[in-house]
């Protein structure tokens, strides 16, 4: 298994939207490298024929009827918003695509 480099941490931070400081990059690189080294042990046991378990419960088809329930009021929905304008969540300029 490849170790976790400083560059890798920078990439993970971008994907995770964390504006890490230079110091943190070094710090986390060391720690994450240690942790990944330790958890990589999972590769030792699980063989091809072992099915994965993504969830502890064997349930299927849990659904609800298509019936309308009361929504929050716009005041409730917006109460915690950092900024509001025209009854909408006001957010800074979005750089992505429209």
């Amino acid at each position: 298994m490849p170790g976790i480099t400083r560059e890798e941490v920078a990439h993970l931070a971008r994907l995770s939207r964390l504006e890490l400081s230079e110091k943190e990059l070094d710090h986390f690189a060391t720690q994450l490298d240690d942790i990944v080294g330790a958890v990589a042990r999972v590769g030792e046991v699980a063989a091809e024929d072992v099915p994965p378990t993504s969830h502890p419960l064997p349930l299927t088809n849990v659904m609800r009827a298509d019936e309308v329930r009361p929504s929050l009021t716009p005041e409730q929905a917006l109460a915690a918003a950092p900024a509001v304008e025209e009854q909408r969540f006001r957010v800074p300029q979005i750089l992505g695509e429209d």
């Binding site: 890798e8 941490v9 993970l12 931070a13 995770s16 943190e24 986390f28 994450l32 990944v36």
Partner: peptide, 18 residues
């Protein structure tokens, strides 16, 4: 997220992302 999360949360988020 940088200012609002502590180290352990950041570590786990990055570990999980990885």
């Amino acid at each position: 997220r940088e200012a609002g999360f502590g180290d352990e949360v950041k570590r786990r988020i990055m570990l999980g992302t990885y």
